[in-house]
Every structure is written in structure tokens, then in C-alpha cells.
């Protein structure tokens, strides 16, 4: 059944990467997706997706609602494992190691691949406890290390100045934008290699959105970032690479400037010019 329905859209990523202008350093792929098929019970949600995401760059997934971009993102840290009746075929490689291998410890994997969700989801604990949550799970209880991490992470998420005087207040008292940055701080506190952002600004007002976008620009210095967005302007603003998905298939992937100015596929052109989607 799978073989019949699977259509493979291979994209020659290396040619894209080489085609990119003003590259003064060689680009090293961090995550490779190889021929990924995903089924929710009988329904196929991803059709043979293959792509590479370079290290310390921002890759954006765009596409209309229900095209599978969030599903693809959630494959990268195995969040889809939580869904009942899901079947995943193909491989996802993090530094040449298949994360779907049986020997992989999922909890340890998720420590290396952080994730921020569409709606801010701070825990109903203090700001401090939110940021240190991941560390405490790893058994780190040294007060000095925790305090240091909290400050660094909150600074990293551009939230420190706003909350430094009320670290012990409940995180639910923060505004939506602050909560989302807190969640980012929480994710970077455990120093992952990759950050997955699932429409991180879709529930926020324009000013908070702007702050998140600035933050993404800073974060890519240290992390490989994959962002899902339905907002094409946002993708154009924050990402280095963009992948356009449609109906569970990867249609086209390239540098952001190329994809938006000179799409190779008609479907991509139609979508970014607003003809459908």
C-alpha cells in the first residue's frame, strides 16, 4: 500500500547549498530526512520527504494548512510517537545517526532537539522553575549552576531584563509574548543542538512577533533552527532556507531569497504569489 502511494520528490540539496552566494564557510548538514513516509492509521500524511537542514542556519517550512509541515517538524524530535496509530517509515539522521533506530533513547534525543510549540505552554510554576525544569530532570540541583543557567537562558531569550526581579512569580502571570520567550529560554537552558519552532509567533501580537523574530536571528548563532510558519513574510524575514510543502509532499526547497524571488516550481510560485493556499 505504501509503495503505491509514495511519490518521491528528491531535491538536490547540495546543489542548492553550493549555489548559494557569499558562502564563506562550508555548510555542514545537521539533520537529514531520508524518504520519510508517515501514516495516521490509514491516512498518509507525509509522502517520501527527503531534505537536509544545514547547521546553525534557519530553515523554514511553509505551505497551506494541513500540508504536513508541523507533522514533519514533530518527526524530528519524535513527538509523533505520542500519537496513537502512527506509522513512520524512512530515516531521520541527526549527525548521521538515525533517530528512529531502536537503540535511541527518546528522552535523551529530545534533550538534543528542543521544541517550542504554537501556543505558549509554560508550566504552572515559577519562572525560575520553568527554566530549570530540564536541568532538574537531568539531576542538576546545584543552586549556583541553576541560577547561572537561568540568567544565561533568559538573556538568550531576551527576557532577562523584564523578569529578573520576579523570578519566583508564577510564569502564568506573564504576557503571551513573554511566555513564548520563556518557553524558548526553557528550551535553550538544556543546550540543545537543534531548536524546532512550531509556528512560534502565530498566537502573538505584532510587537511580540517582532521580538521573537529578532530572537531567532540571534539564536541561529548557536543553534540549528527549524521553523514552521504559515506566514510567508516571516519565513522571508527570518530564514536562510525555505521548504515549501503541499499535500504532504516537499515541493521545493532552496535558499530563501531564491525560493521567494525565483521559484522553480509552478506550485511554489502560485503559493507565494497568493494564488492559492
Amino acid at each position: 500500500m505504501t509503495a503505491q502511494h509514495t511519490r518521491t520528490h528528491s531535491i538536490d540539496v547540495s546543489s542548492i547549498l553550493q549555489g548559494q552566494k557569499n558562502t564563506d564557510q562550508p555548510l555542514e548538514p545537521c539533520i537529514k530526512v531520508e524518504n520519510l513516509n508517515l501514516f495516521y492509521a490509514q491516512k498518509q500524511a507525509l509522502h517520501g520527504v527527503s531534505m537536509e537542514m544545514p547547521k546553525k542556519k534557519v530553515t523554514a517550512y511553509i505551505g497551506p494548512s494541513g500540508c504536513g509541515k508541523s507533522t514533519l517538524l514533530r518527526c524530528i524530535n519524535r513527538m509523533n510517537d505520542l500519537v496513537d496509530n502512527v506509522t513512520i517509515e524512512g530515516r531521520v539522521l541527526l549527525h548521521d545517526e538515525n533517530i528512529y533506530d531502536k537503540s535511541v533513547n527518546v528522552a535523551a534525543l529530545r534533550r538534543r532537539i528542543g521544541m517550542v510549540f504554537q501556543k505558549p505552554n509554560p508550566f504552572p510554576k515559577s519562572i525560575f522553575e520553568n527554566v530549570t525544569y530540564g536541568l532538574r530532570i537531568q539531576g542538576i540541583n546545584d543552586k549556583r549552576i541553576l541560577e547561572e543557567t537561568v540568567e544565561n537562558s533568559l538573556r538568550g531569550a531576551a527576557l532577562w531584563d523584564e523578569v529578573k526581579d520576579r523570578l519566583n512569580d508564577n510564569a502564568l502571570g506573564l504576557s503571551g509574548g513573554q511566555q513564548q520567550r520563556l518557553v524558548i529560554a526553557r528550551a535553550i537552558a538544556i543546550e540543545p543542538e537543534v531548536l524546532l519552532l512550531d509556528e512560534p509567533a502565530s498566537a502573538l501580537d505584532p510587537i511580540s512577533t517582532l521580538k521573537i523574530e529578532e530572537l531567532i536571528n540571534e539564536l541561529k548563532e548557536k543553534y540549528t533552527i527549524v521553523i514552521v510558519t504559515h506566514n510567508m513574510q516571516q519565513a522571508a524575514r527570518v530564514s536562510d532556507y525555505t521548504a515549501f510543502m503541499y499535500m504532504g509532499e516537499l515541493i521545493e526547497m532552496g535558499t530563501t531569497s531564491e525560493l521567494f524571488t525565483n521559484p522553480r516550481k509552478k506550485q511554489t510560485e502560485d503559493y507565494i504569489t497568493g494564488r492559492y493556499g
Binding site: 505520542l82 528522552a107 529530545r110 528542543g114 505552554n121 504552572p124 525544569y133 528550551a187
Partner: peptide
């Protein structure tokens, strides 16, 4: 308990048991 809270905890590398003890049961 909202699913997003559980996912938030799991995404930070918590196991199901840790998520239960640290987040879900207190809530």
C-alpha cells in the same frame, strides 16, 4: 490537563514518569 503541557515537558527530555510526577500530578 492540556496536552500542550505534557508535550512541553516531554520536549525537554522528560520521560513519561517524570512528566507525570513533576507536572501532571501536581496540576
Amino acid at each position: 490537563i492540556p496536552k500542550s503541557i505534557r508535550e512541553g515537558s516531554l520536549a525537554l527530555g522528560a520521560t513519561k514518569l517524570e512528566t507525570l510526577w513533576l507536572t501532571v500530578l501536581p496540576m
